[in-house]
Computed example of a mutant assay.
Amino acid sequence: MSDFSSLGLSDWLIQQCKQMGISKPTQVQENCMPPILEGRDCMGCAKTGSGKTAAFVLPVLQKLSEDPYGIFCLVLTPTRELAYQIAEQFRVLGKPMGLRDCIIVGGMDMITQALELSKKPHVVVATPGRLADHIRSSDTFSIKKIQFLILDEADRLLEQGCTDFTKDLEVILAAVPVKRQTLLFSATLTDTLQELKGIAMNKPFFWESKVRTVEELDQRYILTPEKVKDAYLVHLIQKFQDEHDDWSIMIFTNTCNVFKILIATDVASRGLDIPTVQVVINHNTPGLPKIYIHRVGRTARAGRHGVSITLVTQYDIHLVHSIEGQIQAKLKEYPVEEKEVLKILTQVNVARRECEIVQIPILFIHRYFCCEYVAVG
């Protein structure tokens, strides 16, 4: 493996990486940073937790340090949570050069954001909807001279059928210069990105990781009848809490809600880097392999180990086969004592029915554990 200096990275950035505990480039950094530094457009597709953000942050900062001025880089991302994480990496790595960043996302005061944009920050990290609103309503800033346009989680931003994203992107693309470097990064390669590779970019460098999930991730499944799936979920939570009381768990389901547990919809499956998540449980088997990849990528990040467990019913076997084909690996069965699950089955069913009767919009887990909860997604 190369080191950062052999990739052409400046000494001051190498020192910043060391201070963050980053001593060696990951595969996506090793392959994508040199062409970006050469001025080429780039499309990088790599597993979650593989260092994709630093793969574009580092070369952008190096180019900016050579000629700092105005709004130099625009990063678009689908969620506000990811926008804050990207901005933080720019802020930490770019501290020696006095980097000024600006986060433009929904839920914040537009007048305050407009004032920040008018001060010409070096880097703007934005969700498309809010930035498009500013472009439509304000003439106090311009992105006509940006050097970099970056789409992170590009497959989500460019997904067909997402009409709101499409309209907002049209507004933004009309406001940026034609002559620029365009960088696209994602964990999954969709048909939309394949088409874009040959159409919308200027002969881009393309790199795709052959590995969809990290080696440190122990990927498991539990085959369970649909009617007792909830009891298996509660049993798993009990088991992990009893054996590892300092572990955190993230549960993906079709609805959302916590007991040192983050229960989330697919809104949370992209980009979130929560270092202490040791376990991901899929309450439902994802209908698309790319959704599975994004979900399980919330654990085993940056070299850490993690476990993912998918509850598979008799109706989901074909979905598991599709996932295994995409990740090029077989999910292993997770051992469960069925008699232990049956012990709590009645209690779980009663708790669920009580919640349904009073129309409490949370999972039965809250009733079962008698705990406080928060809703995510």
Rank of each mutant, 00 (worst) to 15 (best):
S6N: 11
L9E: 03
C17V: 02
K24A: 11
R40C: 13
R40V: 02
M43I: 15
G49A: 12
S50I: 08
K52C: 12
L58G: 05
Q62H: 11
Q62S: 14
E66K: 14
P68H: 10
I71M: 10
I71F: 03
T79K: 03
R80T: 12
Q89D: 15
R100Y: 07
I104C: 14
G106Q: 10
P128Y: 00
D133V: 02
F141H: 06
Q147S: 13
F148N: 00
F148E: 03
L149V: 07
L157C: 05
L157R: 03
G161S: 10
C162D: 13
L173S: 07
A175T: 02
F185Q: 01
S186Y: 01
A187I: 00
E195T: 13
L196W: 00
I199D: 14
M201S: 06
E215H: 11
Y221P: 04
E226G: 12
V228A: 08
F240P: 01
H244Q: 14
W247G: 04
T255R: 00
T255D: 01
A264N: 06
A268N: 03
S269M: 05
L272S: 01
H283E: 10
P286K: 00
G287H: 09
L288F: 01
Y292A: 07
T299S: 15
S308E: 09
Q314V: 08
Q314I: 06
V320I: 15
Q326C: 15
Q326V: 11
K332N: 15
E337W: 00
V350P: 01
E356Y: 10
E356L: 14
Q359S: 09
C371R: 07
C371Y: 00
V374L: 10
